[in-house]
Write a protein that binds this DNA or RNA. Sequence first.
DNA 1: AGTAAAATAT
DNA 2: GATATTTTAC
Length: 347
Amino acid sequence: MDRELWPSGLRVLVIDNNSSYLSVMEELLIKCSYKVTSYKDVREAMSFIYGNIQIVDLIISDVCFPTEDSLLILQEVTTKFDIPTVIMSSNGDASIVMKYITSGASDFLIKPVRIEVLKNIWQHVFRKQLIGENRSCSNSAQHLDQVSYPPTIAPASTCATRTTGIITEAATATLESATRETTNGTVTDIQDLRKSRLSWTTQLHRQFIAAVNSLGEKAVPKKILETMKVKHLTREQVASHLQKYRLHLRKLNQTLHKDDTPSPSSHPNESNILRTEFNSSLNSTYFDQDGCLEITEYSLPKDDISSGSDCMLGERNNYSPQGFQDFRWDSEKQGSETTYLWNFEAE
DNA sequence: AGTAAAATAT
DNA sequence: GATATTTTAC
């Protein structure tokens, strides 16, 4: 694979309580053009992970943790954050390897780790996301070796491959798949939620409603956006959603009028209708319940260059004006979180 | 900012 | 093919 096509900038977190080997690893990883963060102490590493989930793509950890909770940590990381984790050890007994692999490790490396091996670990980041996804198999399977790195757009300077010839079909990859949430059910960061299109999950929608309610009559896209305090959410998206939302309200109102309130309002002035709706069924309840601070970040692939990883084959759809196309969520999510119903505010 | 319609994505 | 979301044009 070409140097240019290398997924450099992959953010790797290394953990090894052996500081000299930690340095070795660090050096090797840097040679592979990864962005490396190293920790000798697992606990520190964990807190780093917790505070920087969004900037860790892959974790490489030695098995020899000070405490014997390596498995737990591994499981926690892999299940909770869905960060691919590679375990390494000088002991390659099948039983041990099996233990880690079955616990969710993406790979098990035998020390000493050769740089050739490290050059390939980036695959785990993508492999993990492709599981269960076959959306564009036929199209992109053949391109898997040059899959793009969703969260970034390659800066022209670093990346030789632009929208020109080479990657016409544009490899599409799913990266994030799980919705990150704070303990209960509140969405904290929809970075994971972002596909090429935003998914208005019920939670996100509630926050939208909350914002609209708190703003009352002044609920305009810009204000709503501010009120929602969701990173990376764009005004357009809010406007679009608002548009749809109002449409829904209108419809709702019509049926209401037909049913029990055939009021003589013959004027097509919608402001009244809307206001009525806002006041009747969408008042402070939601604001109280959900507040408006849950989702703090949302980002589109389009302009997410936040963490600055550079050249990753940032590729766009050839025909799509908006770039990366498919980031689907896990099907499990689909029923509960993702499908919001317009009438849920009447709950 | 708002709306409608067209374009795209799922 | 239907529906949800985004983009575009007024």
